[in-house]
Design a protein around this nucleic acid. Sequence first.
DNA 1: GGTATGCGGAAAACCGTTTCTTCGCAAAAG
DNA 2: CTTTTGCGAAGAAACGGTTTTCCGCATACC
Lengths: 354, 354
Amino acid sequence: MTVDQGVPRRRPARVGIRDVAAAAGVSITTVSDALNGKGRLPESTRLHVREIADRLGYRPSAAARTLRTGRSGLIGLTTTNHAAEPFALSEYGWFTELVRAATGAALDRGYALVVLPTSSRHDVWSNVALDGTIVVDPADDDPMVRELLRRGVPVVTGGHPGASVVHGWVDIDHALAMDTVLDHLAEAGGRRIALLAAEDGRYARRCVEAYRDWCAAHGAVPLVETYPLGRSGAASAAAGRLLDRTQDDRPDAVYGLHEGCGPELLAAARTRGLRVPDDLLVACCGEDAPHASAEPPLTTLSLQPRITGTSAVELLVGVIEDHAARTGRPSPTRHTVPIRLTVRASTRRGGTGF
Amino acid sequence: MTVDQGVPRRRPARVGIRDVAAAAGVSITTVSDALNGKGRLPESTRLHVREIADRLGYRPSAAARTLRTGRSGLIGLTTTNHAAEPFALSEYGWFTELVRAATGAALDRGYALVVLPTSSRHDVWSNVALDGTIVVDPADDDPMVRELLRRGVPVVTGGHPGASVVHGWVDIDHALAMDTVLDHLAEAGGRRIALLAAEDGRYARRCVEAYRDWCAAHGAVPLVETYPLGRSGAASAAAGRLLDRTQDDRPDAVYGLHEGCGPELLAAARTRGLRVPDDLLVACCGEDAPHASAEPPLTTLSLQPRITGTSAVELLVGVIEDHAARTGRPSPTRHTVPIRLTVRASTRRGGTGF
DNA sequence: GGTATGCGGAAAACCGTTTCTTCGCAAAAG
DNA sequence: CTTTTGCGAAGAAACGGTTTTCCGCATACC
């Protein structure tokens, strides 16, 4: 014996606000108000509606809400890059930490983060409703930034926004960073301090410039060795070129600008029988984790990417949330990230420390 | 003399499909069809509409489109974690690479990725319209997975889905991985092979289990040293405990399960005057980049996170895109990620290699 | 000449919320 | 007794697209 349902049961469509209203015996307005804590409703009604909604497993449609309110709760995070992927290996740790921190900060404020490489297909990122966007290391007159601004999407940049007029930016004082490192190396006994840098990128350019300035100010002869980014082994080779110079010309201290070149420098020194720090002081830019357990532990300069990420989110959320109130772009907010030098054995001569 | 605008100019509202239609002298239907390559329109009309739309700088509203079509072009990527941030440090490189690869793969297929920690506020992630979600390392009966499925959002997991019935998963054969490493260490001369593992997590548990199985199968006495995750210095201390055992009991080979414990093992060995690989073979799990330039270079087992990320996206997009056609959940698709052992000096005794 | 065929395009319904406006009604004020 | 006032809630208009349905008009065919 078969039990016939009679009417073929329609597929259990999403339960919408209408269903809740019907079940609770009120209007959809009342449901909306009750659930969002708006309107003037006695607590009893509010509770009742909430309970019904809960029992029905009602979840408001994000799309409909976004359409109506104009807010999606989504923040874009983009960066210039070469492949389809969100960041280059040369910025590995830095960018990863930045994204981690930004994700957390955004979440704390009720936003979710969408990571979008600049190179991604226009039709992809222009098809997601963004309340605002963080652009890390924008190009000088970044077309993506321009397009976002044209669409009225608030933009905060990590690094100087160049020609674009954005809503805010958070920057790193690379000149200060460079001075800090070079001063430290000089103080630690470096007489001929070299720079190991990649050939490309704004970051490298700004740093090299700052390096030359410091040299000029201190009467030192600049020694910069560069290598193309992305070619594996290139950094290692460049480190080798630096240490293979004739005795008089060979640097007795090196600062490596990019992630990962610290260990390369150590390896190059080891190969050539140079002791660190006695024959060569080595410092590099990067985060602590991987460098503290190198042999010897490496002195690092941290650009504190977490602060960049967090600040950018804070700035952006601020802009987004008073975009609601006033219109007309307020003067861009700025924030400068402090840098942090961690001195370790690789630049500490004589004794085991202190 | 003041020029009065007469009518106070309304703020230049978004240009919508209606504006384009008006400007082009056609209906909004025609505009929609022309822009989306649908309907039956002569090429001339299509071109005309496109040009007008372009000139007006028209961008369709993602929210409206999502509401109508039910597709947002957004894929969620979530993982269990402890803090508000998207992944724990113990999985640093692994997860980062996974996300990088997944982002790229998603973009290639026209989707953007939203990274959402499991612990993030429910109201955040339930407020974003997701076409599907990748859940990395789900809990056994993951509440987030359940909620997503209830909402009809396709789910693909990285790692076994446990009790949940998901649309697909990509897994790693940890037993195979363990056998591969241990076989290699034994072949390289390891007589007493220890395991260094964290106390927590499914990954660690599965690996320890596989380790014991291998030991049982090979008549070896298991030696597992564990440490709490997240406490800095804990891994280092555990490595020390392992190497401080009495002469007869001390391991002559160690496999470290987690990111970053390779260098810790090397440092611990160095401190105790043990030569690697002569006195101690060291291998660890992790990606190549940071380990290749250790001293000595470390043998690593890569779990190939990029493949996990890419496969998960492929599986998910497949599910999403024929969710459109057929209803009724198809049998879950599965994919197993190959692992890769890279042998380096840290497990190569005698000679410089080869 | 009447009917089928196909093309180009328009009207209107729809997606699921939020929000603006209105409205009834009871108690308080005049 | 009439007019405010305020509370509680409903109706309906957005929001900005896509999709379904339908319609007019030629041209071709019988």
